[in-house]
Every structure is written in structure tokens, then in C-alpha cells.
């Protein structure tokens, strides 16, 4: 698979797919998309990078171990539920804030935090599996 064309395009493709995955993640609240599918897109981006350039560069680029990323996502998801204790409502109640950033209203919410958690869990979990499989193959 290590043709020059593939190796040349893979980093650009990975960057594009990652950007797209974040776009899919953020539009997920009201339109098709969300953390799970976004995470899958991001994980396949890392898989492509791994196929083209080897697993070691991917692990270097990720910096954190994929499982640690998944664990951080789990923390985010639990935190999104626990925030509602401070608002005095039931576990996992959706809470919203609309701060103005540079004159634009930005909707931030606990469902978004939860979705980011799902995104990270999927990215971490699937990348860990994909990288392990690719590693085995290249030995």
C-alpha cells in the first residue's frame, strides 16, 4: 500500500477527514451527525494515516495513548451528567449557556459535552484496535 501517491495524499486526506469529523460532531445536535459518527470518521482518518506511513508516526501524532483518549471521553460523558447536580436537576438534564464570543452567540450545552465525550471514546477505542491490527500486519 505504500505507493508514493498514497503516501503523499494521506496526510492531507487525514487532515481533511479530521476537520470533517469535527464538523459532523458539532452539527450533530440538530442535524444528522454527532459524536459516534464523527468519532468513526476521525478513527478512519488515523487508520488511513497508519496504513500509509506506518503506525509509529500515528502514535507520535496522537501524543496520548488511544485508550487514554477514550478514558478522557468517558470522563467528559460522566461530567456532563454530573454538572446537573449543581443546577439542582436530574442526572443528565440538558443545560445550556449562550455566551457571546466576538459578537456571535455560541450555544454551549451539556449534551454537547456528552457528545464530545462519545467522540473521544470512539476515536480512542477504534484507533486503538485499528493501530493494533496494523501493527501486527507490518511486523
Amino acid at each position: 500500500m505504500r505507493t508514493i501517491i498514497f503516501r503523499f495524499t494521506a496526510p492531507y486526506l487525514t487532515a481533511l477527514m479530521l476537520l470533517f469529523s469535527i464538523f459532523v460532531l458539532l452539527r450533530g445536535h440538530n442535524e444528522p451527525g454527532g459524536g459516534f459518527i464523527g468519532g468513526l470518521i476521525a478513527a478512519s482518518a488515523f487508520a488511513i494515516y497508519g496504513i500509509a506511513c506506518g503506525v509509529a508516526p500515528v502514535r507520535r501524532a496522537l501524543y496520548f495513548h488511544p485508550m487514554a483518549i477514550a478514558a478522557a471521553g468517558l470522563c467528559f460523558a460522566v461530567a456532563a451528567g454530573i454538572v446537573s447536580i449543581f443546577a439542582g436537576t436530574g442526572f443528565m438534564t440538558g443545560l445550556w449557556v449562550f455566551p457571546k464570543i466576538f459578537g456571535t452567540e455560541v450555544a454551549l450545552s451539556t449534551p454537547m459535552l456528552f457528545d464530545i465525550g462519545v467522540y473521544l471514546v470512539v476515536v480512542g477505542g477504534i484507533s486503538a484496535i485499528a493501530l493494533a491490527l496494523e501493527e501486527r500486519e507490518s511486523d
Binding site: C75, I85, G90
Partner: peptide, 28 residues
């Protein structure tokens, strides 16, 4: 209806398990 913090006991066992599990996984 109002919520008392003690109502969270219902969910606490599950939330605690996932929180600790995730922290331990980050410190692998």
C-alpha cells in the same frame, strides 16, 4: 420539583464506577 443532593445517590454507584474506571485508564 426540587432536587435534593441526596437524590443523586440513585445514580451515584454507576457514575462513581465509570469515573474511577476512566481515571485509572488514563493512568494506565
Amino acid at each position: 420539583g426540587a432536587f435534593a443532593p441526596s437524590d443523586y445517590l440513585v445514580i451515584a454507584p454507576v457514575a462513581l464506577c465509570f469515573l474511577f474506571g476512566a481515571v485509572l485508564l488514563m493512568l494506565r
